[in-house]
Computed example of a mutant assay.
Amino acid sequence: MKRIQPFVGLTLPLCLSCLLVQAVAEERQLEAYECEQDGVPSFSDSPCGPDGQRLGLDYEQPSAASVDSARRAVDETEAQTDRYLRQIELQREIARSEGRISDLRKERDAKLRQLRASLNNAEGRTTQSIWDTGVREQMAEVAARYASDIEAEQIRLERLLQREVELGRP
């Protein structure tokens, strides 16, 4: 079975929203230090020697409205991701159902061809009418059995297609 590829377009906003909510929940003072080693500037969250300069970072506690907005954005992104995954799985089910219908038709046709060939090969037998009747009954049974199986799968396919219309296409 194929695995669903990561959804970068949906995952990135979700991750960023989660980080925002986490940052809001953790009230901590942000500190950063700028250091220079061998002429190359670097930054750290802890003092980095006597040359290190503490950088002033402006950080304000987000308002409750901002927190609520971020939470709603996360919830909306999760809902969109769930909907997209349901749509993909539904499309796979539709493809499997269509494939099953095609396979049933091919199997039916192959069995009927085989029975017709045996009917044609029986010409000239003394008991041909009995043979013909038996083969024709077998053909009717095969056709009826496959018709029933195909109809059941078509009903399933119609239900899947209806769910796809209700859910929408990705």
Rank of each mutant, 00 (worst) to 15 (best):
M1E: 10
K2G: 03
K2D: 08
R3I: 13
P6K: 11
F7V: 03
F7C: 04
V8H: 11
G9Q: 15
L10Y: 08
P13H: 09
S17A: 15
Q22F: 09
V24A: 15
V24L: 09
E26Y: 07
E26M: 07
E27N: 13
E27Y: 08
R28N: 01
Q29E: 08
A32R: 09
Y33A: 14
C35E: 02
C35V: 07
E36T: 15
E36L: 10
D38Y: 11
D38W: 08
D38R: 13
F43A: 04
S44D: 12
S46L: 06
P47A: 07
P47Q: 12
G49T: 03
P50G: 03
P50E: 13
D51A: 10
Q53V: 12
R54L: 13
L57F: 06
D58V: 14
Y59T: 11
Q61Y: 05
Q61V: 11
P62I: 06
A65L: 08
S66N: 07
S69M: 11
R72W: 06
A73W: 04
V74I: 14
D75T: 06
D75E: 12
E76H: 06
T77F: 02
T77G: 09
T81C: 01
R83V: 02
Y84K: 12
Y84P: 02
L85C: 08
I88N: 00
I88C: 00
Q91C: 05
R92F: 03
E93R: 12
E93P: 02
I94D: 04
S97M: 09
E98T: 03
I101F: 02
S102N: 10
D103F: 10
D103E: 15
L104G: 02
L104K: 02
L104I: 04
R108I: 05
A110L: 05
K111Y: 02
R113M: 09
L115R: 04
R116G: 05
A117E: 13
N120F: 01
N120K: 05
N121E: 10
T126G: 15
T127A: 09
T127H: 03
T127L: 09
Q128W: 09
W131N: 07
W131I: 14
D132G: 07
D132K: 15
D132H: 11
T133R: 04
G134Y: 01
G134M: 04
V135H: 02
E137Y: 08
Q138W: 04
A140N: 11
A143F: 04
R145K: 13
A147S: 12
E151G: 06
A152W: 02
A152R: 12
Q154T: 03
I155F: 00
R156F: 00
L157M: 08
E158C: 07
E158R: 15
R159P: 01
L161E: 09
E164G: 15
E164F: 05
E164C: 14
V165D: 06
E166M: 13
G168P: 05
R169V: 13
